[in-house]
Amino acid sequence: MRMLVNIRIPHEPFNAFVRDGTIGAVLTQILEDTKPEAAYFTEQSGWRGAVLIVDLDDPSRVPALAEPWFLKFNADCEFRIVMLADDLKKAGLEALGAKWK
């Protein structure tokens, strides 16, 4: 199941990792461990942020994705199921529309 992980990172302890020069290693370790399909870094309401696309074969993997962000950065993580256009085509929307008129 493909998921979008929206991460909001507080200024601390992120700033401390930047100051001591270890932020690159910390982020590399998290990304190598979680293996997202894509990772984007952005601003979110004045905070640092990241948006990851991950493909989970088992929901029990959610903690393994979230805990590094929680433990290293005290970050907030939101998980949303997402689909590609081809996935949406297979959803049977026409049949659902007919059933729930």
Rank of each mutant, 00 (worst) to 15 (best):
Ile53Thr: 10
Val54Ile: 09
Ala85His: 10
Phe79Arg: 00
Val62Arg: 01
Glu94Phe: 11
Ile23Trp: 08
Phe41Val: 07
Phe79Ser: 06
Thr34Ile: 15
Pro13Gln: 11
Pro10Gln: 11
Thr42Lys: 00
Leu88Val: 15
Ala75Tyr: 03
Lys72Ile: 03
Pro10His: 07
Asp87Asn: 12
Leu52Glu: 08
Lys72Tyr: 15
Asn74His: 13
Leu71Ala: 10
Thr42Ala: 10
Asn6Ala: 12
His11Ala: 10
Ser45Arg: 03
Ala95Ser: 09
Leu96Lys: 08
Ile23Gly: 02
Met1Gln: 06
Ile23Met: 12
Asp86His: 01
Leu93Pro: 05
Glu94Asp: 12
Leu56His: 09
Leu31His: 11
Lys101Ala: 14
Gly46Phe: 06
Ser45Leu: 06
Gly92Thr: 12
Asn74Ile: 06
Asp55Val: 03
Glu32Phe: 01
Gly49Thr: 12
Lys89Cys: 11
Ile30Asn: 05
Gly92Trp: 06
Val18Ala: 07
Ile9Gln: 06
Tyr40Val: 10
Gly97Cys: 02
Met83Arg: 05
Arg2Asn: 15
Met83Ser: 15
Glu43Phe: 01
Glu94Gly: 07
Asn74Gln: 14
Ser45Gln: 10
Ile7Phe: 06
Arg8Val: 14
Pro63Asn: 06
Asp58Tyr: 00
Lys89His: 11
Leu31Trp: 07
Glu12Thr: 02
Val54Lys: 00
Leu96Asn: 05
Gly49Gln: 12
Leu88Thr: 11
Leu96Pro: 01
Asp20Ala: 02
Leu52Val: 05
Glu37Thr: 13
Ala98Gly: 09
Phe79Leu: 11
Glu32Met: 05
Met3Val: 13
Leu31Asp: 10
Gly92Phe: 07
Ile7Glu: 11
Asp86Ser: 12
Met1Ile: 03
Val82Gly: 12
Lys89Pro: 03
Ile23Cys: 02
Ile9Asp: 11
Glu37Trp: 00
Gly92Asp: 09
Leu31Glu: 13
Thr34Ser: 15
Met1Cys: 04
Met3Lys: 02
Leu84Phe: 05
Asp55Asn: 12
Met83Tyr: 13
Ala50Thr: 04
Lys99Thr: 11
Glu78Pro: 01
Lys89Gly: 11
Ser45His: 06
Pro59Gln: 07
Leu27Ser: 09
His11Cys: 02
Gln29Glu: 15
Phe79Asp: 04
Pro10Ser: 08
Val54Gly: 08
Lys101His: 12
Ala85Gln: 13
Leu65Ala: 08
Arg2Leu: 15
Ala85Asn: 13
Arg2Trp: 07
Glu32Pro: 00
Val18Gly: 01
Ala91Met: 14
Glu12Gly: 00
Pro10Val: 07
Asp57Glu: 14
Tyr40Lys: 00
Phe70Asn: 08
Ser45Asp: 15
Leu93Thr: 12
Asp58Gln: 00
Val26Lys: 04
Leu71Gly: 05
Trp47Phe: 09
Leu93Gln: 10
Ala38Ser: 15
Lys89Arg: 12
Leu65His: 10
Glu12Ala: 00
Phe73Leu: 11
Trp100Glu: 02
Ala50His: 02
Trp100Cys: 01
Asp86Leu: 00
Leu84Arg: 03
Val82Trp: 03
Lys89Glu: 14
Gly97Met: 09
Pro13Phe: 10
Asp20Thr: 02
Gln44Tyr: 11
Leu93Asn: 09
Gly21Thr: 07
Ala16Phe: 02
Thr28Gly: 08
Phe17Ile: 00
Val62Ile: 14
Ala95Asp: 10
Asp87Tyr: 02
Trp69Ala: 02
Val82Met: 12
Met83Ala: 15
